[in-house]
Design a protein around this nucleic acid. Structure first.
Length: 300
DNA sequence: AGGTGTCAAGCGTCC
DNA sequence: GGACGCTTGACACCT
C-alpha cells in the first residue's frame, strides 16, 4: 500500500501546475512554463520520497495546451532529458504515478470530434508517462463519460471506442466509477467487454452506489487488475460536513480512515487521498497507516 | 500595485 | 435554451 495525494503540494514554495491563457500562447511561454512545472515536479517528488508519500498524481497542466491545435512545439524532444531524469528519481524511490485528465476528456461522446480530441488528450498523458520511462502500472484514469439518455448504448460506444485507442493509451487506461453516471456495476460491465482495470473511488461509490458493501466491492474491482497493471488504485475522500452531497472534505477524518483500513483487509492497493489540504492530510494518513502490514510492505 | 472578471475543452441538472 | 457546477485558483487586463 502506498498513500498519496493529487497534483499540488502547498508545503513547498514551488508551484508546479502553472498555466496561462490561450490568448497568450507562444513557444517561449510554453517552454518557460514547462521548465518551471518540471522543476517543481522534481521538488515534489523529493518531498514525497522523504515523507513516505509514494503515490502521486501528476497534474494535467504539466504541459499546457499540449493536445490543443495551437501547440506545434515539439516539447517531447525538447524536454526528453529532463523527463528521463525525473523518471529515474521516481523509480529509484518506488513511487507510483497516476494522471487524471479532466471532465472534458471522454471517449464515448456521440460526437466523433469530441472523441478525437479526447484521444489527443489521452495521448498527451501517455507521452508524459512514457517520457518519464514509467512501466504500464503508471495509469491514466478517466470516467465512463456521458449517458445521452441511453446508458446501454453509451456503454457499448465506450467499448467500441476503447478498441480504437492507440496502444500507448490503452496499456495505461483505467476506468473510475463516477459520482453520477457510471457506478461500479456499470464499470464492471465495461471491464467484462474490454478488460480495462477499474479504479475504485470510495466516495463516489457512496454517493452513486450500485449497492455493494465495501468488502464485496474490493473483491470485485481488485480482480480487474492484471499483473502488469500493478496493485489496484483507489481514490479516497470524504464528505465535507454541512455542504451538499459530493463536496470533498477540507481535511482527512482519521477515525473514518482507520475504519476504512480495517474494512478493506486483506486487500492491498494504492490509495490517493482526494482531500482539499492535499499533502497535509496525506502525511496524517501515512502516520495512521504506519503500523498496517500492507503499508510496511513498500516502506522499509 | 491592487482589484476583479474570466478562463480550452463536455456533460448533466436546474431554472 | 441558457447558466451553472464540476477540487477553485490564478491569469490577465484594468485602473
Amino acid at each position: 500500500m502506498r498513500i498519496g495525494y493529487p497534483c499540488i503540494n502547498r508545503s513547498i514554495a514551488c508551484q508546479g501546475d502553472r498555466t496561462f491563457r490561450l490568448k497568450s500562447y507562444s513557444s517561449e511561454r510554453l517552454i518557460e512554463t514547462v521548465q518551471n512545472n518540471l522543476n517543481c515536479l522534481e521538488e515534489i517528488i523529493r518531498f514525497n520520497a522523504k515523507n513516505q508519500l509514494l503515490f502521486f498524481r501528476i497534474t494535467s497542466d504539466l504541459v499546457p495546451f499540449a493536445s490543443h491545435p495551437v501547440c506545434n512545439f515539439p516539447w517531447q524532444e525538447f524536454f526528453q532529458d529532463r523527463f528521463r531524469q525525473i523518471g529515474k528519481l521516481i523509480k529509484r524511490n518506488s513511487i507510483r504515478i497516476s494522471m487524471h485528465p479532466d471532465q472534458f476528456t471522454l471517449i464515448n461522446s456521440v460526437d466523433l470530434q469530441i472523441f478525437e480530441k479526447g484521444v489527443k488528450e489521452l495521448t498527451y498523458h501517455a507521452e508524459v508517462l512514457d517520457l518519464l520511462g514509467l512501466p504500464p502500472s503508471a495509469k491514466i484514469q478517466i470516467h465512463g463519460g456521458g449517458v445521452y439518455g441511453d446508458k446501454n448504448g453509451s456503454l457499448k460506444r465506450f467499448v467500441d471506442r476503447y478498441g480504437r485507442l492507440p496502444l500507448k493509451v490503452r496499456r495505461r487506461l483505467v476506468l473510475e466509477n463516477d459520482d453520477r453516471s457510471y457506478n461500479l456495476i456499470d464499470c464492471l460491465r465495461i471491464n467484462a467487454e474490454t478488460g480495462v482495470p477499474i479504479l475504485f473511488d470510495v466516495f463516489h461509490h457512496h454517493v452513486n452506489s450500485s449497492g455493494e458493501r465495501l468488502g464485496e466491492a474490493f473483491e470485485r474491482f481488485s480482480r480487474t487488475w492484471k499483473e502488469e497493471d500493478g496493485i489496484p488504485m483507489v481514490d479516497y475522500s470524504s464528505q465535507r460536513k454541512g455542504e451538499k452531497k459530493g463536496t470533498h472534505a477540507e481535511a482527512i477524518d482519521l477515525r473514518n480512515f482507520k475504519v476504512f483500513l480495517l474494512e478493506t483487509k486483506p486487500h492491498d492497493f494504492d490509495v490517493m487521498l482526494e482531500i482539499k489540504d492535499k499533502e497535509k492530510s496525506a502525511l496524517k494518513a501515512v502516520r495512521a497507516a504506519s503500523k498496517d502490514s500492507r503499508f510496511q510492505k513498500i516502506v522499509r
